[in-house]
Amino acid sequence: MTKIDFSVGSLSSWLAKVVPDAGPIAEVARFKGGQSNPTYLLDMQSGRKLVLRRKPFGDLLKSAHAVDREYRVQKALAQTDVPVAPMLALCDDESVIGSMFYVMDHVDGRILWDPALPEQSKADRGKIYVRMAETLGAIHRVDLTETGLDGFGRPGNYYQRQISRWGRAYRETATVERPEMDWVMKWLEETSCPADDRVTLVHGDFRLDNLIFATGSTQVLAVLDWEISTLGHPFADISYQCMQWRLPQGGAFPGLVGLDRTAHGLPSEEEYLAMYCRAAGISEIPHWPYYIAFNCFRMVAILDGILHRIKQGTAADPDRGREMGKVIPDLLAIAMQQINSFK
């Protein structure tokens, strides 16, 4: 954790009004690792722990860092099968700590960073992947009307809108010239999307280290980082997660390439997709290369945006951001390979 960068006194006064039973703040510390919305642990004198997530300071891209949307979707999911942290309060008054933020209860558990799960038993590795697939399936089965999330995004044309959004963001702030990225964007913009018209809640960043697991078991206690969640097409989430099967081991974005998955008790991509399909209640995912290429493009745009914020001095964790940026050539190579195999 690193130092904080706002007035604890101002935050304490606000908390006393909106979450009075939390008590006074004893200590505030900032979590390391996140690249978007800075996140802080609030240790209260009562022994209770809260978590605060805020927008970054400085100039931001329009619609980026939407902590209000994070708060809204997690609050709506509280009574569903999707595990989320309990939401406490949202503050849109920037005078309190300098930017919009929300506060939630801390979920006590563990975060697993490496998809190879080296510290887990062989038996638990398989169970953890089953729990991930079940959790993603639960997200995609959420009843949008019952949860009040039917207006959480624009239905239809999800991939075209995402390609337009991230392509525009990339072109506005690109840190270097990347001819491969230009070629991938052009292909996506000109190729008819094969997706059907189904609409579900999509997380947008569903991966192992955005889940909190119970200590001592494989139960998923909470899904984190809902910043880019919206209404969209479910295959975007599952294909995003499955990029890890194509990325190298180690680094800031660890993958599973070169690992003997059977020997380690890890599922193949085909086996994991079957787990997900059962959880989501569907039979298959056609046109798979398109969705992998789409997510590689989107991830490059996101990672280059982080590199841009590092140049601006507004990145949450510059060192980790630079490490994450090193995977961009791999992502572009994967995208081009998938495009060449798409029929």
Rank of each mutant, 00 (worst) to 15 (best):
R278Q: 14
S121N: 02
G109H: 06
G156Y: 04
D5G: 00
S10H: 06
Y158H: 11
E94T: 11
A279W: 06
L11V: 09
E270P: 01
A76V: 10
A169T: 07
Y40W: 13
K311T: 10
I328M: 09
C296V: 02
E177Y: 05
P254E: 07
V67L: 09
N37I: 13
R168Q: 14
N295Y: 07
T218N: 13
N210Y: 08
L266H: 08
Y159S: 11
R131I: 03
D143H: 05
D21I: 15
W245V: 09
N295R: 10
R69F: 09
E227C: 06
L211V: 12
L221Q: 14
L90G: 11
D5C: 01
L273F: 05
I292C: 03
K186E: 13
E227M: 05
K326F: 11
D209A: 04
P289W: 08
A315N: 08
A64Q: 03
M324S: 04
M181L: 13
I163K: 00
H264M: 13
T200I: 01
V103Q: 12
A315I: 01
L117G: 07
D59P: 08
L144T: 05
G232C: 05
F297E: 05
G305K: 08
F213N: 04
M100I: 07
F342I: 00
I334Q: 05
D114W: 01
F297P: 01
R309G: 01
R165E: 00
I285T: 03
Q312A: 13
G321A: 14
S121P: 00
H65T: 10
A85K: 13
Q219Y: 01
R171A: 14
T80K: 10
T147E: 02
M185R: 14
D21V: 15
L60I: 13
K49H: 15
L266D: 04
G232Q: 00
L208C: 10
R261E: 06
F57C: 08
S99W: 03
L259K: 05
R131A: 15
V8D: 10
S229Q: 02
A174C: 06
K49G: 14
S283V: 14
C193G: 04
M87H: 07
M336V: 12
